[in-house]
Design a protein around this nucleic acid. Sequence first.
DNA 1: CTAAAACCTGACGTTGACGTCAGAGGCAAG
DNA 2: CTTGCCTCTGACGTCAACGTCAGGTTTTAG
Lengths: 135, 135
Amino acid sequence: MRIGELAARSDVSVRALRYYEEQGLLEANRSDSGQRHYPESAAARVQLIQMLYAAGLSSRTIAELLPCVDARVSTPESRARLAVERDRIDAQIAALTRTRDRLDAVIAFSGSPGSGCTYIADRDVAAQASHSVMP
Amino acid sequence: MRIGELAARSDVSVRALRYYEEQGLLEANRSDSGQRHYPESAAARVQLIQMLYAAGLSSRTIAELLPCVDARVSTPESRARLAVERDRIDAQIAALTRTRDRLDAVIAFSGSPGSGCTYIADRDVAAQASHSVMP
DNA sequence: CTAAAACCTGACGTTGACGTCAGAGGCAAG
DNA sequence: CTTGCCTCTGACGTCAACGTCAGGTTTTAG
């Protein structure tokens, strides 16, 4: 399939796919005229790339991990590399969980009866500030 | 306390604190000479800001949420706003969990006996890696 | 009192993952 | 053939959260 179709299937932009290639994350077969041509499997690959980007990994890190995932290259070093990133993601999940619980606590408190503050009475500072931040 | 001490306590840069003020996230009392002075509570505030940044929220979004969290301002709208961000974080946790499990699977597979690839036998594996993505 | 350290306000620089535009070529349909 | 969409390669633009530098004032240590 050509780049436009892969973009549509993967729900990423054509520009992003070319960028992935530039970063060494995604390769393409070229037709005689130079157009990129991808196998079906490319869609899964792009999805994986997106997952890793969403986990906060950089292009460079992804480029280092992908050969391990996809060609099953396994050395002690590559497994360690994968584990490092796995642990980073674990830590990130833990931090996000704390943040979510913090927000939950605030929501529960502010929504509880007797919190005594369903309306802004004291200060117009808050409302004023949140509007004045916008240009 | 002055900005340098707050920075040290919160483990963020002085520049970052000034940026937070610029974005309306953190206010400071000024001395006659114009130097910023913060109360003890500022450290907790900065930590909260960091948590929210780490959760992927923008300055603008944080500026909208902070009055709710910290002044206990509660309207149906503000609670809804908090809930929206909480749900976003939940979704992010779910996505990260899937990514982590995916990496775990790769690690388990590449490390398992009989994977037939405990160490690299051929240095040129990368060159022939053109197909076969994960199941 | 003096020198170092900390602080101030601009203002320009950085980085990553793209967006966007320009100009040129390619491909199936009518 | 030619119309219209798709694709190509540069190359500059963007945006957020700061980093960094310049040039000047303030606070603190000795």
